[in-house]
Simulated scan of single mutants.
Amino acid sequence: MVPLIFCSFVMWTLILDRVLFFSRLEKKDIELHTLVRIMEKGNLPGKVRGMRANLVRHLMANRTRNTAVDKGIVDQCAMAMRPYLEQYLAAIAVLAAVSPLFGLLGTVTGMITTFDVITLFGTGNAKAMAGGISEALVTTQSGLVVSIPGFFMSVLLYKQSARAKSRLTEAVSILKRSL
């Protein structure tokens, strides 16, 4: 149970980190139609945060007025952002996949305990066998309780990552056309 609890704690810590990260990306971000206006005016409101705002902020800070160089700056910034959109997602999926295996390990140790009791006392002592069977069932259930929501959250976070990458690609495309 200890590895399963540790696995669950790490997985849910990473899930919470990603949920907060994706919510901050969308929270006070600028709309696509305002990207061009912001680039023309040259000023980005201070309270604006998010992925598109960071892209514009980076471009405005490093802008050279040379179209080819500025397009490269946009690409460079987008490439630097992409790994953060996928960060920890594979680890969350692996931890969700490993947790039923930890449950299975507990099942095996519980059954070994049950067979040891049978070896010592025979099948006549149901109370002695119940401890091993209980250990087997509890660890199996715990592994599934950790795994199923973990897989669900992993899929949701992968979808959020794909949406964020799509929004980033749209913003890069619009910024490149406006340069």
Rank of each mutant, 00 (worst) to 15 (best):
F102A: 05
L137Q: 11
P149H: 12
I148W: 04
L59K: 06
K28Y: 03
R52N: 06
M51F: 00
I73R: 10
V172A: 08
L25F: 03
A68E: 15
P149T: 11
R57Y: 10
L156Y: 12
H33F: 06
F6Q: 02
G150Y: 11
A96W: 09
L105K: 04
L89D: 08
G106T: 09
V94T: 12
A97W: 02
M79F: 13
I5H: 01
I38F: 08
G124V: 07
R37N: 10
E26L: 07
L35M: 12
K27E: 14
A80C: 01
V56I: 14
L89E: 10
V94N: 01
V19Q: 05
F21T: 10
L179K: 02
L32A: 14
T119L: 05
L120Y: 09
T107S: 04
K28M: 05
L89Q: 05
M11D: 03
L144R: 09
H58K: 12
R163C: 01
T34M: 09
L55Y: 03
V48F: 00
A164W: 00
A128R: 09
R18N: 08
S142E: 06
L25P: 01
Y88H: 15
I133Q: 08
E31I: 09
L120F: 12
K47H: 09
S8R: 00
K71V: 07
L89A: 01
V10K: 05
G72Y: 10
F152R: 03
R167D: 14
F102D: 06
L137N: 03
T139Y: 10
I148A: 07
S134N: 06
Y158E: 14
I30T: 11
G42F: 05
V146T: 15
L175I: 15
D70E: 12
Q76P: 00
S154R: 05
L137A: 04
T123R: 06
D70K: 06
A68T: 14
A68W: 03
L156I: 09
L44H: 03
A96K: 02
L95I: 11
T139K: 04
P100W: 02
T140Q: 04
R177M: 12
T139V: 07
N66P: 01
R65L: 07
A162I: 10
E170S: 04
I118L: 13
K159Q: 12
I133F: 00
N43L: 12
P149W: 11
A68M: 10
S99A: 15
A136P: 01
V48E: 10
T123P: 01
Q141P: 01
L25Y: 08
N125F: 04
N62C: 02
Q160I: 06
N125G: 01
F115H: 09
K47E: 14
I148C: 04
K41R: 14
